[in-house]
Amino acid sequence: MLLLAILSAGESYGYELVTRLHAAGLAGIGAGTVYPVLTRLEREGDISSRLVPSTAGPARKYYALTAHGQQTFTSAADAWRGLANTVEPLLAGAVSSKEL
């Protein structure tokens, strides 16, 4: 879902996605986690890729969200918000009772 969220803002390549996750505070997510997920998302049709020539050597693979991926992202984001809305009052209640 996080990768889909980043890609919904525009296309990007593998290592850039990793650095953007790190910048967002998710330092524990490495390229070793991101690349397999990108492979799966592409296989499932949520993202597409294209090769862009690079001055550094081989062509760089850029990923972009597909229409199917946009639907997947919207569903996942709704589910996440629903879960957060359910959990947050419980956590707030637990904190309040502890303060008493």
Binding site: G14, Y15, A31, G32, G57, P58, R60
Partner: peptide, 27 residues
């Protein structure tokens, strides 16, 4: 997958160096 990882490692190494590029992939 191996071919794609080779490409990613080569390009990432250009930004952060090969040891860091490999380390970011984990074991």
């Amino acid at each position: 997958v191996k071919r794609e990882l080779r490409r990613e490692l080569t390009l990432t190494a250009d930004e952060v160096g090969m040891p860091a590029a490999i380390a970011s992939l984990g074991h």
